[in-house]
Design a protein around this nucleic acid. Sequence first.
DNA 1: TCTGGGGTCCTAGGACCC
DNA 2: TCTGGGGTCCTAGGACCC
Length: 449
Amino acid sequence: MGQGHFHHQRLENPIMYAIVDCDNCYVSCERVFRPDLNGQPVVVLSNNDGCVVARSNEAKALGIKAGMPYYQLRQHFSEQQVVVFSSNYELYGELTARVMKLVSDNAPAVYRYSIDEAFCDLRGMQLWDLRQWGLDLRAKILKYTGMPVSIGIAPTKTLAKMASHYAKKFPGYRHCCIIDTGDKRHKALQHYPIDEVWGIGRQYTERLQTIGIQTAWDFCQMPRQRVRSMFNVVAERTWCELRGEDCISIEELVAKQSICTSRSFPHNLTDYVDLRTSVCHFAARSAEKLRKQHSVCASVSVFVDTNRFRTDLPQYGGSDTEHLLTPDNASQVILAAATQCLQRLFRKGFAYKRAGVILSDITGADTVQTNLFDYDSTLYQRRHRLDQAIDRINRLNGSETVVIAAQQYATKPSADDKTIQQGKFRDSIRHDLRSPAYTTRWCDILSSN
DNA sequence: TCTGGGGTCCTAGGACCC
DNA sequence: TCTGGGGTCCTAGGACCC
């Protein structure tokens, strides 16, 4: 790694990128089926109704910040008539998939960067009026899905992100902004606060502001070496991108290198078996995701944490990793490894608030290097067929129709511990204000009465 | 009572080897 | 008295993103 790693592209180079970004994504998803909420302040909460993760423009105008805990705002919300939803990932996943399909149909190469954003490589479109292309795409997406998007177009992904901010913020752009000349880039950088730059977070902003850097333009004027020595090569790449050099390649973002399933618990867990039940559940979900992308993994990690906000309680947290001799994706194998990790990790006397399972060292399932001493092909194939059957049943009948026993096991099913007794882990997550799954469940389909 | 979840990458420092 | 140095691998921790 070093300077040789960068691909240098000048601003006048015809390569352009677009970022297509859903406006206030989760809120907009809710509004597709509740048009009466247009113009109203609306927020969407995280799992367990913990904190605010999405806000409508009206909610932002009221000063509601992302990440604020809900229990502190509840009173406020009812006074200000803010409409509140629990998160409904079934709905958001399905609606954003429709948006992404339209983007893919209208751009030469598309990389989905997150649930609500996609980068397009517009190579080969240099003769197009790209601003008009963006305006047309936005109109098409709005018409067919009901989702408002903003589009930023520029010679690097970092500049495209900046353009999309302008596209959202100033109505004059009509949700599509293009930075295609040195002059536009110059102006855009000078009016752009440093903390809004893609890749510059809270810590970096603080350090930059203490040396007088306020705008993206100021940052660009720093000597390259200064950026490098103050931060790292990642920040240096951001610096290059703002100056118009294309150096964050789409290819290096494509393959998933780790798969994680983690949750906070609505109540603290103190008992080993309860924690193990949850960890086994996360392991099974992770293994399912792994199989879905036709991969295997060679490392299984588990992490646990107490509630960092409860300064009155003793704190403990950590992670442990189990390496597999032969890369695998069988639920049985992943669960066994995760259980081993947890056994080493668990300390009695702590109240656990969060845990998770991370699968890494991921490779394609068809390229498995089998270990001579550990490989039993009959056993391997049997597990594989079992998992296939379970995955199919869960796909057709709803997730967690069939689970491995360890995912539900509890030593002391007591009357006040509904979460384990009810079986499905899903039910142990609080989501009192969830909207219907309009597009994925027959019983929730919208009807006129 | 109540504070998200799923990812990425880099760096520093220790262990170990020759 | 005087106690190498460079390379590699691994892990924990910390930054960033949405």
